[in-house]
């Protein structure tokens, strides 16, 4: 066990865990933010997507010991204009079914629009294919990302 200070959504959290604990479980079990989901634990499904210093990261594949002073953003701390547009589009298209993967989907989609304001279908494939949705809501994810991009053109 070791003490770590995690900076998550602008707040510092002191936790005492095994250094090899994946960031995912520190966020969920130690910090208590449960919007970030566990789906596979092996960076295959994307349900645990967070930002580390603004970059999308699968929190299951990063040990707490490697986070250092980086700023972590979870779905609870998502406030960018792209995120707002994505979440609005998600509701407008009724994207979610079971919803369990959608925190990760929204994180990935908002990050995509931050880097690429007008993504093509292929750009969406490249950005979003790391997020598995077992309900296969993909048709709507694609449509909602296009809608969100359009709404940001403003």
């Amino acid at each position: 066990m070791a003490a770590f200070t995690l900076k998550i959504n602008g707040r510092e959290h002191q936790i005492d865990v095994d250094p090899g604990t994946p960031l995912l479980w520190a966020i969920r079990d130690n910090v208590g933010l449960t919007g970030t989901k566990y789906g596979c634990g092996v960076a295959q499904c994307g349900a645990c997507t967070v930002y580390v210093d603004g970059q999308t990261v699968r929190s299951c594949s990063l040990p707490v010991s490697a986070v250092g002073k980086s700023e972590v953003t979870t779905i609870e701390g998502l406030t960018s204009k792209e995120a707002v547009a994505v979440q609005k589009a998600w509701a407008a298209h009724d994207v979610p079914q079971c919803g369990y993967c959608q925190s990760g989907q929204v994180m990935s989609a908002a990050a995509l629009l931050g880097l690429n304001p007008k993504p093509t279908d292929q750009d969406i494939d490249l950005a979003m294919n790391g997020n598995i949705c077992r309900c296969a809501t993909y048709v709507r994810i694609r449509a909602a990302i296009h809608s969100a991009a359009k709404s940001l053109e403003g």
Binding site: A43, T56, L115, D123, A127
Partner: peptide, 9 residues
């Protein structure tokens, strides 16, 4: 760019 970076995982 905007897609999956190696460093995502």
């Amino acid at each position: 760019p905007g897609g999956l970076a190696c460093t995502t995982c």
